[in-house]
Computed example of a mutant assay.
Amino acid sequence: MSKINAEDAPKPVGLYPHARKVGNLLFLSGVGPRTAGSDANDSGVPGLKLDHNGNFLEFDFEAQVHSVFNNVKRILEASGSSWEQLVDVQVFLVNMKRDFHTFNKIYAEYFKENQPCRTTVEINSLPTPIAIELKCVATVE
Results as ranks from 00 to 15, higher is better:
Ser38His: 02
Gly44Asn: 06
Gln90His: 12
Lys49Glu: 15
Gly47Lys: 00
Pro10Cys: 06
His66Met: 13
Thr120Gln: 04
Phe59His: 07
Asn24Leu: 06
Leu15Phe: 09
Trp83Ser: 06
Lys135Val: 15
Leu25Met: 11
His18Tyr: 07
Ser81Ile: 05
Tyr110Thr: 07
Asn124Gln: 07
Ser38Tyr: 00
Leu28Gln: 01
Gly32Gln: 06
Phe100Gly: 04
Pro116Gln: 06
Leu93His: 10
Val72Trp: 02
Ile123Gln: 09
Ser43Cys: 09
Ser67Ile: 03
Ala19Ile: 08
Ser43Asn: 05
Ser43Lys: 03
Ala40His: 05
Thr119Gly: 14
His66Asn: 14
Val31Thr: 12
Thr102Ala: 12
Gly32Cys: 10
Asn70Val: 05
Met96Val: 02
Pro33Leu: 08
Asn41Ser: 13
Leu134His: 09
Ser29Thr: 11
Thr102Leu: 13
Asn114Ala: 15
Val68Pro: 00
Ser125Leu: 01
Glu122Met: 10
Leu26Tyr: 09
Leu134Glu: 01
Ser82Cys: 10
Gln85Trp: 00
Glu84Lys: 07
Ile106Cys: 07
Lys73Phe: 00
Ser81Leu: 04
Val91Gln: 06
Asp99Met: 01
Val91Lys: 02
Thr128Asn: 02
Glu58Trp: 05
Pro116Ser: 12
Asn41Cys: 07
Phe111Asp: 12
Leu15Ile: 11
Ser125His: 10
Leu15His: 13
Ile130Ser: 11
Ala40Arg: 11
Ser82Val: 06
Asn95Asp: 15
Phe100Ile: 10
Arg118Met: 15
Ala108Gly: 10
Lys105Asn: 15
Gln64Leu: 09
Val91Met: 04
Val89Lys: 02
Cys117Gln: 13
Pro46Leu: 08
Leu48Trp: 04
Pro129Gly: 02
Phe100Lys: 11
Asp60Gln: 01
Leu76Lys: 03
Val87Tyr: 04
Ala78Lys: 02
Pro33His: 08
Ile130Tyr: 02
Gly30Gln: 08
Tyr107Phe: 14
Val68Lys: 09
Glu122Cys: 05
Val94Thr: 15
Val72Leu: 09
Ser79Asp: 07
Phe56Arg: 11
Glu58Ile: 12
Ala19His: 05
Ala40Asn: 00
Gly30Met: 10
Lys73Ala: 14
Phe111His: 12
Asn53Asp: 14
Glu58Met: 03
Lys21Met: 10
Asp99Phe: 11
Thr120Leu: 13
Thr128Leu: 03
Asn55Leu: 12
Gln115Phe: 04
